[in-house]
Design a protein around this nucleic acid. Sequence first.
DNA 1: CGAGACATGTAACATGTTACATGATTCT
DNA 2: AGAATCATGTAACATGTTACATGTCTCG
Lengths: 202, 202
Amino acid sequence: MAGIEGDDSATVSGSTLGYALLSLLTRGPATGYQLTQQVKAPLGHFWTARHSQIYPELARLSAAGWVDSVEQAGPGPRAKKTYAVTPAGLAALRAWLVIPPTAQPRSEITLKAYAATSADPAAMAALYTDLADRSTRLLAEYEQDAARMRAAGQDDPAHPRFGNYAVLMMGVESQRAVHRWARWLASCLRTGRPVAYGEAAD
Amino acid sequence: MAGIEGDDSATVSGSTLGYALLSLLTRGPATGYQLTQQVKAPLGHFWTARHSQIYPELARLSAAGWVDSVEQAGPGPRAKKTYAVTPAGLAALRAWLVIPPTAQPRSEITLKAYAATSADPAAMAALYTDLADRSTRLLAEYEQDAARMRAAGQDDPAHPRFGNYAVLMMGVESQRAVHRWARWLASCLRTGRPVAYGEAAD
DNA sequence: CGAGACATGTAACATGTTACATGATTCT
DNA sequence: AGAATCATGTAACATGTTACATGTCTCG
């Protein structure tokens, strides 16, 4: 009904993956291959997709008129296609963005903690010590990236790549949270006694 | 090969959902219906499953010899089945627990932040203000639950329900992280200028 | 006597992973 | 010459959601 020409958006639907790809394409036109690379960081800290999922989804977005593509004779057996968001695609993205998400997070490491007392305490303690170490490394990495982005002015909401910075900051917060929790849990399992939160030794 | 009689565990496999159900059943025998309720909290903060997924999975676990069931004439058209973990099931769970998890987290709210600059700033700021409020409420709720558990001695790794406490503590950490991040992001979007982390007003 | 909890299942569909399949270009 | 990277797709399978289907028991 309303608005954009060629917009048959009575169907408001579309998968989350589709919107993720539209978000990536707002940074500029890209091929399926490039999107597969770009979904790795920083978005990949909180959202991933393989090329086998991306290519069919691009075809669906194209059929819906939310992206269009130009072909250039590529290196392989098939032509290389560069995709760009259409006005209808951008409108769909904007409409989706302001809908409050409902999806529950899923964390396998927390699920394992739920059954922690069923396993060998030393082995479980090692698991969470490793996790704490990993989060320390990731945190250092993310903080470096964040500092670089700030130097480039990406912490300004007016910067077109502000979203990259926002995602990275969530990564920083998450890794801090994981670090504190994993260190505490490892400490509990190692000592076999209750450990006050914040008093866990490394 | 080794060990438990009746154990044909050359097949080490099994789905994550299966292990989640085994973890729940280590708390004691339960019906599919009860598991559906129990998966809601605190495990549901980080793992969910509907009854339509649970019933077939219980049948698979039963076929694998990881749980066994007794039927009692139930209220409805079908008999009510109470499931319990077998020694083979417990062994499988223990083996799975110590494998470092690899699954990436998926967060729709962070994905939306990635495209934050494509939407109306006021609407996006409202989205993250709501999220900050929600995390405040959840945090208060979780902290109360945690205090109750500590009073019951569940913060002791020797307590059979220590896992419930560990999951809840991850919930506390996560909601704190989300709160700080959402408040900061809302502040950025509201003012339209870079906001130093930790200096976001409510 | 109606609403809601108790209780178990199946079917259709949507989403996501692993593996299969092909072939050019660039670097070592 | 072989490996890595560029580049696009399909098929089979695993996982998860929504909707369909049935019927009892308890409380108000």
